[in-house]
Amino acid sequence: MQATDPDIQWVEPPKLGLGERMYLPLFLQGLTTTTKHLVSAKVTVSYPDQEPEIDNPLIYRGVHRLNRDEQGRVKCVACFLCATACPAHCIDILGVESPWEDREKYPESFTIDELRCIFCGMCEQACPVDAIELTSLYNLTGRSREEMIFDKEKLLSVYDATKDKEPMKSAQLPPVTTPSTATPSTATSTSPTEGGA
């Protein structure tokens, strides 16, 4: 490639005006900016003393939970879509024949290795029945590796602990306004307030 190549675009720096050559206006400009920041509100959250505010818990990707349906049963139908979607391979499901009428399978065991999880939220997106969700619990700690492998009971208990503060997302999201109004039954059944709308 030569310097005469028509593809090269030579960019000339802008000419300095008198104000820039005087240097003082630019200096004052910079000093004003720093002084503004010097006295402005700080963005630091002093974490152990002060809990961070999560703007929108619905889109926050924290610890997982397994949702229950209205009868208190696990909502999961053991379709393995989440385990397939998971890029970290941290979901392990053992699906067996369901004792209930409304589905064919249910998970006998459902474990998530929280140490392996990268909190990408793809399991949540993949789930056809909105059974697995990410909560806004951000301070996930444990004393051993075994403790960080969450089984079905633990994931359901996360739901029990967070269901009041964070209702199921399917209940929170606005109903899909397609012409056929084919909203999934799971979306409306859990929330009586939204059932009419």
Binding site: M1, Q2, A3, W10, P13, L16, L18, R21, M22, Y23
Partner: peptide, 23 residues
Amino acid sequence: AYATPMIGDNRVRKDIHTYEVDP
């Protein structure tokens, strides 16, 4: 400010150097 601009340009001047890139 008129006589000596405080900002010197040290970039390659294409009117003096033929700037060639490895073909």
